[in-house]
Amino acid sequence: MTSEALTSTEYIRHHLQNLTCGMQEGHIHCAHDAAEAKAMGFWAINVDTLGMSLLLGLCFLFLFRSVAKKAATGVPAGAQNFVEWAIEFIDNSVRGSFTGRSALVAPLALTIFFWIFLMNLMDLIPVDYVPQLAGAMGLGHFKVVPSTDPNATIGMAIGVFFLVIFYSIKIKGLGGFIGELTLQPFGKFGLPANIFLEVVNLIAKPVSLALRLFGNMYAGEMIFILIALLPFYLQWTLSLPWAIFHILIVTLQAFIFMTLTIVYLDMAHQEHH
């Protein structure tokens, strides 16, 4: 526990609070508690989520770009081995699920997988380290795992959603896309039912993407926080197995997000009859 003065409820609440900052009365202000953060409304920013996302995304891009810049056809070594393995893995996944041809889908899948993987991986940092460090730097809250913030997962899901709509319209035309929404599965006489079913079907894609990732990571983080409530000499008995199990979840969730994105984009590329 961070301090003897904190109750368990306060401790958990503290760990689940983002560093939310926004403009208030002309100057930048960071919320001290959940109520204050809520009062800031929509035009506030979770600095920790965006900061960590940016940092991890840049780590990923830096590693891959540094390899790409000196990519040689000779015998690969070191980081090039890893990057080439990763690229081949993603390429195989895309080839397996995506039947069309697109220059976007494979890099998209690569970005999604490694970015989310790195974000999820932050979950394995012991829960108190980063908040303590942030506290020492004068920041009241700091959630180190961006994927436990629904803003991050919904943000990415919205990106995928836009791509789905964009490709649906690009491949089938605006009329084709609207026809797909309205004329099936019941034909033109079941139009209201069609619209209802298809819109739900369409909306369910980003919602399920966002909430699946968020739910898994949030629950995992929650359990780490609960384990951290135990006396320190007992924590390892639970946190070690959970961390090991979490390595699987971290990878699996990144993989699921990537695969579903590929599948959704594949569906957007296919004509329904």
Partner: peptide
């Protein structure tokens, strides 16, 4: 755990990363 402008920021960042990649 409020929905706020972080969401937009994340979407924009996502788009930029994908574009760069």
């Amino acid at each position: 755990m409020n929905i706020n402008a972080t969401l937009l920021g994340q979407t924009i960042m996502f788009a930029m990363f994908v574009w760069f990649c």
